[in-house]
Amino acid sequence: MSTTEVLAAALLLAGGLFYLAGTVGLLRFPDVYSRLHALTKADNLGLLLVCSGLSLLAGSWRAAALLGTIWLLGLLAATVSAHLIARHARARHFNGGEQ
């Protein structure tokens, strides 16, 4: 196993760990907003680590740039969704409970 592969494996494993942490937070945290924290932040770091590991394995600049773009778009999707979900939850809260 080459050094690149060892490094890639470490990055991939770390990425998997952050995905796990995101899910644990999703199940353990007490309210919607806290769960959003867990999901957006931990999963995005997980995706970043997975993308970095895969870029090392792919060994081409174009694949790496594509993986980077995918991560950036994932980041965008996460912030937009998190804001919209939190907003929705608050609107429901102030309108007097869930429908």
Binding site: A21, G22, V24, G25, R28, F29, Y33, S34, A42, L45
Partner: peptide, 22 residues
């Protein structure tokens, strides 16, 4: 900052005592 954010929230989620005060 987002790296720190991920590590921070992962640590809080995994901690047996759930170190949060929302």
């Amino acid at each position: 900052e987002s790296f720190k954010g991920g590590v921070d929230v992962a640590w809080r989620a995994m901690h047996p005592g759930l170190k949060i005060n929302p």
